[in-house]
Design a protein around this nucleic acid. Structure first.
Lengths: 331, 331
DNA sequence: CTGAAAGCGCTAACAT
DNA sequence: ATGTTAGCGCTTTCAG
């Protein structure tokens, strides 16, 4: 592997001149520039980023930690982040934490070791103060989708509280009275907000709320719905805490031969765009996932460029998309 | 930011002893071990990976370049890669190339500069010989999903040729005679294979094939289908080159009021699992995406560990999943 | 078992 | 406009 010295001697100049070719090209005499250029091409030289970051203290790398890239919501967030990162010359390191604080902590350790310039994270429930480590090492952080108790830093999330208000209101309008919330996990701020919005709306409609907490997985949605069947607690409408939970609910309902929305109304948070394109069926509160990613990256960029103001909190507006699954049987 | 020297002086030992604490802990006397440990914790010291890689020549980072993480097929591939990478202590750098050779080339440059230990790539159509750069710099590469002409290296892909044979055969069995292939992009090996399988099956059935090439996007599928309407070339069955194309086809058909499969049969390559769970509708040839990712990572790991044998080519079996969209009207 | 010296590849700061 | 020196934080090598 060629080094800057190889290029220097090949071009008959000093290492500094080669370094300047990359960093301050205007400083070189045209003839020198050409000589260096020729040497670089001949040797196919590419500067070593590790050596560079060792001296200038930044790595031009950022990291995105989320629970599971496989959830289309996070996929889109990731795309928003990556596009912006790429535009600004940052490499993106990706990590799936699977809602495990333990895994998340291990990742953060690696990221600190790599001295990434910034971190975007949708943190697992609970607060270990493991995020403090980033702060201690001077690595800026932007929270995505979820805030974390006691952690005051930049954050971007979807205003699902309002979304929950609208969604619950919509179901009430459709004439449903027994509306339940499935999934929703204590400690995850975004889910707690959905729950709060649901509770508020139910109260305002003078209806009795029922929350069945669980993980945000398809499996969890399925299990909870199965239990509703077992315990004979089937409501008129189910709000799923996220898209995957909704899928589990639908799978369970289908297994029992219930039709949606004829026999049961269903709606959820987070759109599943591709499914909606194939068949506009599921009513959802959609979040602007791509914008969430790119905005979070923008906030991070500002921090990495030295912005030192108070932390910023951006609640992005959500959008309720009414499709078939939530309509009143008679509609 | 504390360095190894800070820890050393804090612990009253030399830097080498601290280094050994991390790299050859058994070599330290128990008492020394404890002293170092205390110093590290007190200072919250985390070794600098850049400095380390500068001397030992490896970064413990690998990269995954694919066209668009937003396609659920690639998302799942990425998850397979990341899980395996994580298990082996490698950080994963992610890049979306959007089928642009230019963007891909820029990424590779960055990766070479970062001296990643290996690259997994689903390369854009065309061969710039830009992949040669990786080889020149001694960075092992594993191709995912697509092979590249003239590039002889490890590769993992889905056997969609056989998949196309089966899928076309299935449609023929259902009684369709006018079956067309929509999408499929010259230069993308995986799509060429699908086309080859389709052509072979049509020939064997003594049917006349029709291929309408295009990009592998929803938009492309939509446009091509619109043209079929305009030119009055509507067939009895449409095979879409991938999942996104299929979505475009379905959108277009719906716009024109055609029902699937009553008025038109549709099938495609690559499953859309979440949509299938909501409503098992679309007949597909599914590829083992997660395994593709983890297997590719395994091959890469072997290379990074020094394996120097001839290049390995793994064609993973695909699975046809017959759902409603491809059934004969009378069925 | 522990330490000192040298160097990985690059650039900031100071010459010339 | 270009070169020299020193050092970024760590580990390899060789001594002790």
């Amino acid at each position: 592997m060629n080094t800057i010295l190889d290029v220097a001697s090949q071009a008959g100049v000093s290492a500094m001149t080669v370094s300047r070719y990359f960093n301050q090209p205007d400083m070189l005499a045209p003839a020198t520039h050409r000589k260096v250029r020729a040497a670089i091409e001949k040797l196919k030289y590419v500067p070593n980023a590790a050596a560079r970051s060792l001296v200038n203290g930044c790595t031009n790398a950022i990291a995105l930690i989320l629970s599971d890239i496989t959830n289309s919501f996070y996929t889109t967030v990731a795309r928003g982040v990556e596009d912006r990162a790429q535009q600004h010359g940052y490499a993106l390191i990706l990590g799936n934490s699977d809602e495990s604080l333990e895994k998340e902590r291990r990742y953060l350790d690696v990221l600190i070791s790599r001295r990434v310039d910034g971190v975007l994270i949708s943190s697992a429930p609970g607060n270990d103060h493991h995020l403090d480590m980033l702060h201690h090492h001077g690595i800026p952080v932007v929270l995505i989708d979820r805030t974390v108790e006691e952690i005051d830093t930049d954050a971007v999330w979807g205003d699902t509280f309002t979304g929950a208000l609208h969604l619950t209101g919509h179901l009430v309008e459709q004439g449903f009275r027994d509306i339940v919330l499935v999934g929703g996990w204590p400690g995850v701020s975004s889910l707690e907000e959905r729950q709060a919005g649901y509770l508020r709306a139910m109260k305002e409609a003078s209806l009795v709320p029922h929350v069945y907490p669980g993980r945000t997985s398809r499996q969890s949605g399925e299990e909870i719905t199965e239990q509703l069947f077992e315990k004979n607690l089937l409501p008129q409408a189910i709000i799923a805490a996220n898209n995957h939970v909704a899928v589990g609910v639908l799978v369970s309902l289908r297994r029992h031969g219930l039709r949606v929305p004829e026999d049961m109304a269903v709606a959820c948070f987070d759109d599943i765009e591709i499914a909606a394109q194939i068949n506009p069926f599921l009513t959802v509160v959609a979040q602007p996932a791509y914008e969430m990613g790119s905005l979070a990256m923008d906030l991070l960029l500002e921090r990495m460029q030295g912005f030192d103001g108070p932390s910023r909190h951006c609640a992005l507006p959500t959008k309720m998309i009414v499709r078939c699954s939530s309509l009143a049987p008679g509609a």
